[in-house]
Amino acid sequence: MVTLSAGLSPAALQAIADLEHRVVAADGGRLKLEWNALRHRSGEAVEDVLWWDGDRLLGFLGVYSHGAPTLELAGMVDPEARGRGIGAALLNAGLQLCKDREHGSILLVVPRSSAAGRALAERQGGRLDHSEHALELLGDPVEVAADPRVTLRAAAEADRPAVRELMRLGFGWEPPASADRDPHTLVIEQDGRPVGAVRLLREGDRAGIYGFVVHPDQQGRGIGRDVLHRLCRTARAEGADVVHLEVETDNDRALHLYTSIGFQPVITEDYYAL
C-alpha cells in the first residue's frame, strides 16, 4: 500500500537502496534518486511516496526541487511487481503532494529505455520537455593544465547577487532565497572576478557535479575544462569512486567537454512536463 513519508528512517533508506539494486540489475543504466537529498530530508514536509508489501518495498517515488522553480519526480517499481498499478498509484500520490507546493511546473524523469515509464507519463497527459544524458567518470580524469588565474572558493554572502545572475544567464532561472545559503556552492573566479559557479556534493562513495555554469562571455576559453578537472580530482581525493553529472542532449559543447575529461554516458533520461 502507499505510504507518505516526511523524512526517511535508516531502515527506509536501506529498503530504497535494495530496491534500486534490484531495478538496476534488471534494467541496467542508473536511477535518478538523488541520494544526497534522500539522506537529508528536512522531515518537515512529505516528499517521498513508498509502496510496501509487508516489510518489502515494491515501489518508490521521490519529489525533488533542487532550488529550481520546477519540481522533479523520479521513482521505480520492483521488476517482479510490475503490471499491478503500483507506478500509477505512486505518481498520483506524488502529483497530489505537488499541488500545494509553490512551483511553476512538474517534470517526471523517465529512463528512455523504459516503455512503461513513457506510457505512464503520457497517460497523465505528459509531453516531452527535454532530455539529458547521465554521465559517469570511473577513475581519474584526463590531465589538464591548471590556469593560475582561475580559482575556486566557497560562496560567501556577498556572492549571492553574482551567483544568482550566473544561474539566470546559464539556466534561465534564479534560485529562491532559501537556496542562496547552499554550503556546497563554489564560485569560480578568474583574476579575482566571478565568472562561474558550481556545486560539488559527496553522496557516499559517489560525488555529483550540479549547477555548473560559466558566464557566456567567458566560455570557450578553457575555464570549464580546468574547473571540471579540479572538481574531479578533489572528489577522487576525498574518496569518491564515481563522479556523475547530467547534460542536456542538445548541448554538444558541454557533452564534448565532459567526455574529453573521461566521462562516459550511462543512460539517457527524458523529462516529461505534467
Results as ranks from 00 to 15, higher is better:
residue 4 L to F: 08
residue 6 A to Q: 07
residue 8 L to A: 02
residue 10 P to R: 11
residue 13 L to H: 02
residue 14 Q to K: 13
residue 19 L to N: 03
residue 25 A to E: 11
residue 28 G to D: 01
residue 28 G to S: 05
residue 32 K to Y: 11
residue 33 L to N: 06
residue 40 H to L: 01
residue 42 S to Y: 00
residue 42 S to E: 05
residue 46 V to T: 15
residue 50 L to W: 00
residue 50 L to I: 01
residue 53 D to M: 04
residue 59 G to V: 03
residue 65 S to H: 12
residue 66 H to C: 00
residue 77 V to N: 01
residue 78 D to I: 01
residue 80 E to R: 10
residue 82 R to Y: 06
residue 94 G to C: 07
residue 96 Q to E: 15
residue 97 L to A: 11
residue 108 L to D: 04
residue 112 R to P: 01
residue 113 S to F: 01
residue 120 L to V: 05
residue 122 E to F: 03
residue 122 E to Y: 02
residue 126 G to T: 04
residue 127 R to E: 13
residue 129 D to V: 02
residue 142 V to D: 11
residue 145 A to W: 00
residue 148 P to L: 10
residue 149 R to H: 14
residue 154 A to V: 10
residue 156 A to C: 12
residue 157 E to R: 15
residue 159 D to P: 12
residue 161 P to A: 08
residue 162 A to G: 03
residue 163 V to I: 15
residue 165 E to M: 08
residue 167 M to D: 13
residue 169 L to A: 12
residue 176 P to W: 04
residue 178 S to P: 00
residue 179 A to G: 02
residue 180 D to M: 03
residue 183 P to T: 07
residue 186 L to Y: 02
residue 188 I to Q: 08
residue 191 D to E: 14
residue 192 G to S: 11
residue 196 G to V: 02
residue 198 V to T: 14
residue 204 G to C: 10
residue 205 D to V: 14
residue 213 V to L: 09
residue 230 R to K: 10
residue 235 A to C: 08
residue 243 V to Q: 10
residue 243 V to H: 06
residue 244 H to G: 09
residue 247 V to C: 09
residue 248 E to W: 00
residue 249 T to E: 07
residue 249 T to L: 05
residue 251 N to V: 05
residue 252 D to P: 01
residue 254 A to W: 06
residue 254 A to P: 06
residue 258 Y to H: 04
residue 261 I to V: 15
residue 262 G to D: 08
residue 265 P to F: 02
residue 265 P to V: 03
residue 266 V to D: 00
residue 271 Y to V: 07
residue 272 Y to N: 09
